[in-house]
Simulated assay, not measured.
Amino acid sequence: MGGGYRTSMTQQSHAGRAPVETPEVDRTLDQILSTENEVEDCYENYAEGSKITDRQGERISDRRDRLVNILEESMEVEDSRLIGSFTRDTMVGPLNQDSDADIMVVLDADRHREWIHQENGPRNCLNAVMRQIQNDPRFSDTEVRVRRNVVQVRYHDSTIEIAPAFDYSKVPQAKHPKQDGWNLFNDASDGYAIPDTHGKQSWQGTNPRRYKQMFEVRDEANNGRVSGLTRTMKKWSENNDVPVRSYHMEIMVYNYFAEKSRTGEPVPSSYESLTRDFVNTLPSRVKNTTREPVYDEAVDSGTSREQKDRVAKKAKSAAEKLKRAKQLKKQGETEKAKELLREVHGEGFN
């Protein structure tokens, strides 16, 4: 028959039921929807599967408790908490030695006032934390070192970074991260002072709780896709040897969603479209300064121009493959599309 219709030539029933006509266009639509769902399911499984496991999370929490207990033997600890990607659900698995979980250990300012006022106080504080852990026999074969503003404890499967801190109000000389301009939330004053030994030693204000609150609000407003896309892009970085820090990538993803909200431009509804849209913006994002949302501080200051160029080049290559995968999917070449997506995201994408 003409007009794009085909008659089903099944036998008529004894009741004399007429043959049923099924539009070819409906069959094609079913195929397209099936392909759409299959690829999107792969993306959703990949984003969800990139999380660390409950067992890994418990291991990190146990290590936090053990390390804090060691420090409490010689230091007056007021509070301790896990911070960073672990608490924002953007830490990716499986864990390896470069996977870092952050602990903030808040010390009593009266008991340890010498570190606040000494010329080399920040470094002395970090060294004291390092030595206390090194002297514990359980860590005799574990690498423990000071790196900039944290003490790193490098396990075989992950790294714990300990940031000693004081209440910001107890460190009068602590720098406010946003010295210029008016700060509506007074974020540093409500937060903590941590050591900064990069260049001239100093105490630097920070408030990880504020960013966590902002992240969670935006993530909830986007049905968990801020954390999901962050994990997806962190895994892309890992699988493609992309020279970009984990936190840098997270902030670029956060800022992408913030810009969508500010301009009123709709966020793509599927992970497939969302990933493709973000990756298209990544070359320009990485070449420009990336600023975190609380203090507007640059988070890419340690990234060289050469590294940024490498990230941009890899992002452009990924964008081209994602575009080609979309075309293959539209042509019904689902397996070829998924094969190309695995080239982008790694063998875990299936």
Results as ranks from 00 to 15, higher is better:
L126N: 02
G93H: 03
V311Q: 04
S261K: 12
D26M: 06
K235D: 03
Y43G: 00
I160V: 12
F349M: 05
N69E: 06
G49Y: 02
M252E: 04
A337N: 09
K51F: 04
S158L: 15
K235N: 09
D62S: 13
V146D: 08
S34Q: 08
A47P: 14
T230S: 02
T232G: 04
E238Y: 08
E78T: 07
D108E: 10
M252A: 03
S140C: 07
F278R: 01
V299T: 00
S246P: 12
N223M: 11
P293Y: 06
D62N: 11
Q327T: 09
L184Q: 15
I83D: 00
A165V: 01
T334C: 05
V344N: 01
D190H: 14
L33I: 10
R17F: 14
S169D: 13
S301D: 15
K234V: 01
G181D: 02
G93F: 03
N45I: 14
I162W: 01
S270M: 09
D167A: 04
R305C: 14
R123I: 06
G264T: 03
R210Y: 10
E259Y: 14
R59A: 03
R145G: 06
I103F: 04
R55S: 11
R262I: 09
S140R: 09
Y271E: 12
N120K: 14
I70K: 02
T90G: 06
P293T: 04
N223W: 10
T206I: 10
Y271R: 04
A188I: 00
R324S: 09
P283F: 12
E265Q: 13
E78S: 13
L340Y: 00
I52R: 00
E73P: 03
S61A: 08
L229K: 02
E21L: 13
S189D: 08
G84F: 10
N69Y: 11
N239F: 09
V279A: 07
R209T: 09
P208D: 07
P172S: 05
T7Y: 15
V253H: 00
N127T: 13
G302I: 13
Q204S: 15
E114W: 05
N96Y: 14
E161K: 05
R138T: 15
W203M: 04
Q327C: 12
F215N: 00
Y211G: 04
D108N: 10
A298Q: 11
V39W: 05
E272Y: 09
Q12P: 07
Y192W: 06
S304R: 15
Y256S: 03
D102C: 06
M1F: 14
P208Y: 05
R123C: 13
E48H: 14
R262K: 15
P283I: 12
R66Q: 14
T10V: 05
Y295M: 04
A165M: 10
D102G: 06
V267N: 01
F86V: 06
M75K: 07
S158Y: 05
R148G: 06
S273W: 11
G332T: 03
R310C: 15
